[in-house]
Structure formats: C-alpha cells, structure tokens
Amino acid sequence: VGDQVLEIVPSNEEQIKNLLQLEAQEHLQLDFWKSPTTPGETAHVRVPFVNVQAVKVFLESQGIAYSIMIED
C-alpha cells in the first residue's frame, strides 16, 4: 500500500476553509492537484501513505465527502 489520491467534495464554504487549512499543514506533505474553490466541486489531493489515515479521520470528523481516486 502506498500513497493515495483522494477525490474530495466539499459541500459548503466552511468545508472549503477546512480543506485550505489542511493544505497549509506542511508536515502532512499533501499535494493538491486541484484545490477546493467552490462547494460541490471536486478537489484532488495526493496523500503520502504515512498520512492517509490522519487525513481520512480529519475529513470524516468534518463531514467532508471523499473517495479514493487512485490507490498506489
């Protein structure tokens, strides 16, 4: 199991704000291929294997929908 690319769908401005804060966490080494800008629009982010669980827990705790787009 390696890195994953998640497709994330924020449903409101609050969730977009939370994702932008997540993007700013440099220690997570997230690679946003497509940043969140509009509710209902997908964002794509590559998550290093060591941080996959932490990111998924965060998304679930914020009620942000996501799916695994690419499993490496």
Rank of each mutant, 00 (worst) to 15 (best):
V1S: 13
G2M: 10
G2V: 09
D3T: 12
Q4T: 14
Q4E: 08
Q4S: 07
Q4H: 09
Q4A: 12
V5P: 01
V5C: 15
V5F: 11
V5K: 05
L6P: 00
E7G: 04
V9F: 13
V9S: 07
V9M: 13
P10V: 07
S11E: 13
S11H: 10
S11V: 13
S11M: 14
N12D: 10
E13A: 09
E13M: 15
E14Q: 09
Q15I: 02
I16S: 03
I16M: 07
I16V: 11
I16K: 02
K17R: 14
K17I: 10
K17G: 07
L19M: 04
L19T: 02
L19D: 00
L20N: 06
L20E: 06
L22Y: 05
L22F: 09
E23N: 11
E23C: 12
E23V: 15
E23D: 07
E23F: 14
A24N: 08
A24C: 08
A24W: 13
Q25H: 07
Q25P: 02
Q25S: 10
H27S: 11
H27K: 08
L28I: 06
Q29A: 10
Q29H: 14
L30W: 04
L30H: 01
D31Y: 15
D31W: 14
D31I: 15
D31C: 15
F32D: 01
F32Q: 02
W33S: 10
W33T: 13
W33I: 13
K34I: 09
K34E: 07
S35N: 09
S35T: 10
S35H: 13
P36V: 09
P36R: 01
T37Y: 06
T37C: 05
T37H: 06
T37V: 06
T37W: 08
T38L: 10
T38H: 07
T38M: 11
P39E: 03
P39S: 04
E41S: 08
E41D: 08
E41N: 07
T42A: 12
T42W: 04
T42H: 08
A43K: 02
H44T: 15
H44Q: 12
V45D: 00
V45Q: 01
V45I: 10
R46K: 07
R46I: 05
R46H: 12
V47F: 01
V47W: 01
P48I: 04
P48C: 04
P48W: 04
F49A: 11
F49C: 10
F49V: 07
V50M: 12
V50T: 10
N51R: 05
Q53K: 10
Q53M: 12
Q53N: 12
Q53F: 10
A54H: 09
A54K: 11
A54E: 11
V55C: 02
V55I: 07
K56V: 12
K56I: 14
K56P: 00
K56M: 14
V57D: 14
V57T: 13
V57P: 00
V57S: 13
F58W: 15
F58Y: 11
F58C: 03
F58V: 03
L59K: 00
L59Y: 01
L59P: 00
E60Y: 05
E60F: 04
E60H: 08
E60T: 07
S61A: 12
S61K: 12
S61P: 01
S61L: 11
Q62P: 00
Q62F: 14
Q62I: 09
G63P: 01
G63N: 08
I64Q: 01
A65G: 06
Y66G: 00
Y66A: 01
Y66W: 07
S67V: 08
S67G: 05
S67Q: 08
I68M: 06
I68H: 04
I68F: 05
M69G: 04
M69Y: 11
I70V: 12
I70E: 10
E71M: 09
E71S: 11
E71D: 12
D72V: 14
D72Q: 12
D72H: 13
